[in-house]
Design a protein around this nucleic acid. Structure first.
Ligand SMILES: [Mn+2]
Ligand SMILES: [Mn+2]
Ligand SMILES: [Mn+2]
Ligand SMILES: [Mn+2]
Lengths: 220, 220
DNA sequence: AAAAATTTTTAGATTTACCTAAAAATAAAA
DNA sequence: TTTTATTTTTAGGTAAATCTAAAAATTTTT
C-alpha cells in the first residue's frame, strides 16, 4: 500500500516518462513543486519498495509494478473527472484539483462501480484516454494543431495543457472537444493560426495551437 | 484548513459529545484507535487553533467553529454514503469505510453539487440526518426498539451501530429502513424481542434491539 | 582536457502524528 | 480520610516527508 505522497510521485514519474526515457530528479522536483533533495529521498524509498529502478545520478524509470500503480492512479483521476463533468456539471477547467484528491481514495470496488455508472468512458474531459481495469488503453496518436498546414481538416480530440486559464480561453473561442475545424491560414509573422469552425472563424496564437490535439481527416 | 487527522478528531469529539457533555481523553483514544497520550497532544493543538475548549484533566468541548467544522464533515460523510448506495449500488453495510475517506475531500463546490445531484437527501442509508449547507438539521427524536413493549407499532428509521456484521444481520432478517413493525412478544428470560413484519415474524436478541431506532406510531 | 555550469546527492534540521514509560491529578473504595 | 484505582498528562523518542546549505558527480563549454 502506498501513501498519498508516494502515489503522487509515481504518477508524476509516469507522466514525465511519456516524454523522456530516464526521468531526472530536477524534473520531478519542478513538477511536484518541491526540492530536488526531497525527490532524492523519495526515489530511494520507492526503489526500496521495488516501484522504480534507480541508479544514482542517472534518474529513474518505473518498474512493472510501479507503472501499473501509476496507471491505476491515472485511471482513477480521469474517471473522477468524467464524473465531475458528466454528473455534477463541472466545467472542464474546474475538475483537475478535485480529481487530484479523489484519485487517492483506496477502494477497487468504488472505482469499478464508478466506471460502470459512467458507462465505461474511453476518454476524460480533456480527451485523455482512460485505462481499463487491467491498465490497458489505446495509445492515442493525435497530431498537434500546430503541425497542420493550410487546408488541413480535423476534429479537436484533446489538449496537452490543463490549466484553467488555457481551458477557459479555448471554451471562449468555441474550441471544445469534438469540434470540427479547418486551417484557413497560418501567419508567417507570429505563427498564429486562423481556424475555420462550422459557424465562425477564430484566430489563435502559436502558443495555444501547440496544446491542441487533432484527429486529422487528412488534407482537404 | 485542517489536516485529515484533525478532522477525524473533531468528528469523533462531536459524536462523543452527543452522549456526554464533557468528552474524555480516554473515550477519544478508544474511538480513534490510538493512545491517550496522542489524544492529549492533538487536543492541545486543536485548542491552540480555537477548535476546542480545553481544561487540563477536565476533557474537551467543541467551540462554535469546531462544531461547525465537525458538522461539515458529518454532512460530507453522509452525502457520500447516499451517493454510494443510491448511485453506485453499494449495500448499506459496505459504505462506511469508503465514506470515511471521501469525507475529507476539500471542495465546497463538490459537496454542493453532489447534494443537488442526489436530490438534497435528508437522511443517509443508516437513517442518520444529513445537515444542510448551513449545518442545520432536525434533531431526530427516535425511540430505541428495545424500549417498546408488546403491541407497540412503528417504522424502522435508523440504526445506532454501523458495523458491517450488524447491518448484514438486519438485512438478512428483513429489518431494513422503512419497514413497518409491531412488537409481538418480549422474552423475560433473555430480553429477546419477537417482531411482526408485514409478511413474517422474526426474533432478535436484546443486543440487536438496542441498536434499532423506531419512529413510533404509538400503542396498537 | 580543464574549467565552468548544471544536476544530484548528502548532512543535518524541522514538523506532524504517533508511540512507551513514568509522573501527576482526579475519582472511587475502604 | 487514607488508600487504591483510574484517568490524564509529561517526558523523551520514532518515522515520514519536508527543508536549506554544502559537497559530489556529471555534463557542457571553452
Ligand atoms: Mn486532471
Ligand atoms: Mn484530465
Ligand atoms: Mn458511516
Ligand atoms: Mn451513515
Amino acid at each position: 500500500m502506498q501513501s498519498y505522497t508516494e502515489e503522487n510521485y509515481l504518477k508524476t514519474i509516469y507522466h514525465l516518462a511519456e516524454k523522456t526515457i530516464n526521468v531526472q530528479t530536477n524534473a520531478i522536483a519542478e513538477q511536484m513543486q518541491t526540492k530536488p533533495a526531497s525527490v532524492t529521498d523519495m526515489i530511494k524509498k520507492l526503489a526500496d519498495k521495488g516501484l522504480v529502478d534507480y541508479i544514482k545520478y542517472q534518474g529513474v524509470t518505473l518498474t512493472e509494478t510501479g507503472k501499473n500503480t501509476a496507471i491505476d492512479i491515472v485511471r482513477k483521476h480521469r474517471l473522477w473527472e468524467v464524473f465531475l463533468v458528466d454528473k455534477l456539471n463541472f466545467k472542464w477547467d474546474e475538475v483537475h484539483d478535485v480529481a487530484e484528491e479523489l484519485e487517492h481514495i483506496k477502494s477497487i470496488e468504488l472505482i469499478e462501480r464508478l466506471d460502470e455508472f459512467l458507462g465505461f468512458p474511453k476518454a476524460d474531459p480533456h480527451g485523455d484516454p482512460i485505462p481499463d481495469k487491467n491498465g490497458r488503453f489505446a495509445k492515442t496518436q493525435f497530431i498537434k494543431l500546430i503541425e497542420l498546414t493550410i487546408g488541413d481538416q480535423g476534429t479537436i480530440t484533446g489538449v496537452t495543457q490543463h490549466s484553467s486559464a488555457f481551458l477557459k480561453h479555448l471554451e471562449k473561442l468555441g474550441l471544445t472537444l469534438g469540434k470540427k475545424i479547418q486551417i484557413s491560414d497560418v501567419t508567417d509573422f507570429d505563427g498564429s493560426v486562423e481556424i475555420l469552425l462550422s459557424d465562425k472563424q477564430v484566430n489563435i496564437s502559436r502558443e495555444v495551437a501547440k496544446h491542441i490535439l487533432i484527429s486529422s481527416n487528412g488534407k482537404n
